[in-house]
Amino acid sequence: MQDATLFQAMRRISVRTEGRSMRDVSREISAQLGEMGAGEGLLTVFIRHTSASLTIQENADPDVREDLLDALDRLAPADAPYRHSMEGPDDMPAHIKTVLTGPSLQVPVSGGRMLLGTWQGVYVIEHRSRPHSREIVLSFLGTRRD
């Protein structure tokens, strides 16, 4: 019988973005799950920024990601008359896009692997136009892999 003792593990990943983009971080997260010894449980993925966000999205056709970025630009255009503009015209729209898409995700884990669908990946969405270094926190709660 498998030992059902729960354990918690936490890791941080630094991700370099290239400006407005969606960057697949699934491999980096999977590698961290392996290092943690994760078995069965729940992974929380959290980005420590207010102008970048996370999503689970299509990982096969890059046109989907470009269309999503375009849709977010239409929802929060850079040329709207925002009050907050101290960090440039792309900053307030970035905050709005983060509110719409969110700073965290929960992903079930089984056998040490994220239970993503066939065409799903975990993405950092960079809402700013310049490259940035972004920090992601991973928190796993579950059992250890046999």
Rank of each mutant, 00 (worst) to 15 (best):
H84W: 01
K97C: 07
M1K: 12
L141R: 13
G19M: 01
T98M: 01
E40P: 01
T98P: 05
G102A: 09
V25I: 15
D79M: 04
L33C: 07
D146W: 11
D73N: 11
H49P: 07
G142K: 12
S53I: 01
P108A: 07
L115F: 08
S21M: 12
G41N: 05
E66V: 12
F140P: 08
D90K: 00
D24G: 06
L100G: 02
G19H: 04
R23E: 13
L115R: 15
M36H: 03
R74W: 10
M36Y: 05
L68G: 03
R144Y: 02
E58F: 00
S30F: 07
T55Y: 03
D24Q: 00
P89A: 15
L69K: 04
V122K: 06
G112C: 08
T143L: 10
T44F: 13
M1S: 15
V137W: 08
L138D: 09
A80Q: 12
R27I: 05
R27C: 05
G117M: 09
P81E: 04
P108T: 00
E66S: 13
R130I: 12
A52W: 04
G102H: 10
S139A: 12
D67I: 03
L43Y: 00
D61G: 00
I13A: 03
I13L: 15
T5A: 15
F7M: 12
S51D: 00
A4N: 14
G19V: 04
L68A: 13
A80P: 09
T101F: 00
L100Q: 08
M10Y: 02
H132K: 13
V15N: 09
R134D: 00
R27G: 14
Q57D: 13
D79P: 05
S30A: 15
E87S: 11
G111C: 09
R130M: 02
V99Y: 07
V15S: 07
P89C: 13
T50F: 00
D90Q: 03
T44Q: 15
R12V: 03
R12Q: 13
S85L: 14
V25F: 07
Q106C: 09
R11T: 02
L42C: 11
V15C: 11
P131I: 07
Q8F: 10
T101L: 14
E126T: 06
Y123N: 03
E18Y: 11
S129T: 14
R134H: 04
M22D: 00
I56L: 09
L115E: 15
D3R: 10
E87N: 13
M86L: 15
L43W: 07
S21L: 04
K97T: 06
Q57H: 14
I125S: 08
L116F: 06
P103W: 06
G102C: 11
R128F: 08
P131V: 10
A80F: 12
G88I: 00
Q120K: 08
S129V: 06
V64D: 08
R130G: 08
D63E: 12
D90G: 02
V124K: 03
I29P: 06
S26D: 07
Q106W: 11
R20I: 05
M86H: 15
R48V: 10
F7I: 05
T5S: 15
M1I: 12
A38C: 10
A52C: 11
G37H: 02
M22Q: 11
A31K: 12
I125M: 13
R144C: 05
I13Y: 03
